[in-house]
Simulated scan of single mutants.
Amino acid sequence: MKRLAWSLLIANVLAAGFFLARDHWPTASAPHSAPFNVDRLSLRRGDAPAATPRPSALPVEALCIEWRGLAADEFARVREQLKTMAGERVMSFTEIPLATRQWVLFPPLPSAEAAAAKADELAAAGVQDVFVVQDGPWRNAISLGLYGNEEATARRVRELEGKGVFGTRVELLPRQGTDFYFVVRSDDPDTLKDLGAIRQAYPNSQQSRIACPR
């Protein structure tokens, strides 16, 4: 009996100690999460606001200057000056005849033999004023006549088509002894300004801004 009483007393002491000590045990830590701190809030890289796109650059408009009124010797000197400028800058120039003729022709054939055969074929169809070009950039083309105006040229083309000749073309050729002028083209306004400075040495010539030929 005395042993039972001691056993109950020890059990009560242990139970009391358990409940008293439990209040001092560390609580299980919750999953770690940083406190929401507005002052330290930062956006992830993927959430960064998109940069405002820059407006695309507008295409640069080509500028053209027409340069007229140069004497024959002046024209030759200016040609060399323009060649030098074209080698140093982004620009080009064209020599335009003041007076032209219109050349009706059949485009170059692969060989002189083919051109001769085509000329015979045209002659057999009743086409007159036919000859094969022997040299130059139009070698082996077939000349079908030179005309002084568009009306005469158009009449010739209609005549040829009436005889079954198609595929002709019209080229402008300078008239013999005609004067020329320059058309200078560049995307750089400073280049065209420099042309004005060069013109001071040729006071009888004129420069004017024009729409660039297409």
Results as ranks from 00 to 15, higher is better:
214 R>S: 07
189 P>K: 06
202 Y>A: 02
142 I>C: 04
189 P>A: 11
209 R>Y: 11
196 G>R: 08
190 D>Q: 15
141 A>M: 10
195 L>D: 03
158 R>Y: 13
159 E>H: 14
182 F>C: 03
175 R>V: 12
165 V>Y: 02
163 K>C: 00
149 N>H: 12
150 E>A: 04
161 E>L: 10
157 V>M: 12
150 E>Q: 11
153 T>I: 03
181 Y>R: 14
167 G>S: 07
149 N>Y: 03
190 D>P: 05
156 R>M: 08
180 F>G: 03
169 R>N: 10
192 L>Y: 09
147 Y>P: 02
183 V>D: 03
143 S>M: 07
199 R>T: 00
182 F>I: 01
169 R>H: 02
194 D>Y: 09
144 L>Y: 08
149 N>G: 05
201 A>G: 04
139 R>A: 14
171 E>R: 10
213 P>R: 05
187 D>N: 13
175 R>C: 05
195 L>N: 06
142 I>Y: 00
213 P>N: 08
209 R>K: 14
193 K>I: 00
189 P>R: 08
200 Q>W: 07
182 F>P: 01
177 G>R: 14
191 T>Q: 09
174 P>D: 08
139 R>E: 09
166 F>N: 08
192 L>T: 04
182 F>Y: 15
189 P>V: 12
159 E>V: 01
154 A>S: 14
149 N>A: 02
